[in-house]
Deep mutational scan, measured.
Amino acid sequence: WVQCTKPECRKWRQLTKEIQLTPQIAKTYRCGMKPNTAIKPETSDHCSLPED
C-alpha cells in the first residue's frame, strides 16, 4: 500500500506484487502513477477515484 502525496487527496492505493515500494516512491507517489517508471499520470484525475 502507498498513500497519495497530493495534500488534498491522501488516499491509499494498493500496489501490484511486481512493484517494489521504495522510500522514493513513498515520498512522491500520486494516484495513477506508474511507480516502475515514475511517470505522473497524463489522463484524468486519478485522485477522484474511490480509495482502494
Rank of each mutant, 00 (worst) to 15 (best):
W1A: 14
W1C: 12
W1R: 02
W1H: 05
V2F: 00
V2H: 15
V2A: 04
V2Q: 01
V2W: 02
Q3V: 03
Q3G: 04
C4G: 04
C4K: 02
C4E: 03
C4P: 00
C4M: 07
T5R: 02
T5G: 02
K6F: 03
K6R: 11
P7A: 09
P7Q: 05
E8A: 09
E8T: 14
C9L: 05
C9V: 00
C9W: 00
C9Q: 01
C9M: 02
R10W: 01
R10Q: 08
R10S: 07
R10I: 03
K11H: 01
W12S: 01
W12C: 03
R13Q: 10
R13V: 10
R13L: 06
R13M: 05
Q14T: 02
Q14P: 02
L15M: 11
L15H: 03
L15S: 07
L15K: 03
T16V: 08
T16W: 00
K17W: 11
K17L: 02
I19E: 15
I19R: 06
Q20P: 08
Q20F: 01
L21C: 04
L21K: 03
L21P: 01
T22S: 10
T22D: 12
T22F: 00
P23C: 02
P23A: 02
Q24W: 11
Q24M: 11
Q24V: 10
I25Y: 10
I25N: 06
I25F: 15
I25E: 15
I25Q: 15
I25T: 11
A26Q: 14
A26P: 03
A26R: 14
A26T: 11
A26G: 04
A26F: 05
A26S: 08
K27V: 00
Y29H: 03
Y29G: 03
Y29D: 05
Y29L: 01
Y29T: 01
R30C: 09
R30K: 12
R30L: 09
R30Q: 12
R30W: 12
C31R: 03
C31I: 08
C31V: 02
C31W: 02
M33D: 09
M33H: 03
K34A: 13
K34M: 03
P35L: 15
P35E: 12
P35R: 08
P35A: 14
N36L: 09
N36D: 14
N36P: 11
T37C: 08
T37D: 12
T37I: 07
T37M: 09
T37V: 10
T37L: 14
A38D: 12
A38R: 14
A38N: 10
A38M: 15
K40L: 08
K40W: 02
K40T: 14
P41H: 08
E42N: 01
E42G: 12
T43M: 09
T43G: 13
T43K: 15
T43E: 12
T43S: 14
S44R: 09
S44P: 12
S44Q: 06
D45S: 10
D45Q: 14
D45G: 11
D45H: 07
H46V: 11
H46I: 15
H46K: 13
H46T: 12
C47R: 11
C47D: 10
C47G: 10
S48M: 15
L49G: 12
L49Q: 13
L49F: 10
L49I: 08
L49A: 12
L49C: 13
L49T: 09
P50Q: 10
P50K: 13
E51A: 07
E51C: 05
E51N: 02
E51Y: 05
E51P: 05
E51I: 06
E51M: 02
D52G: 11
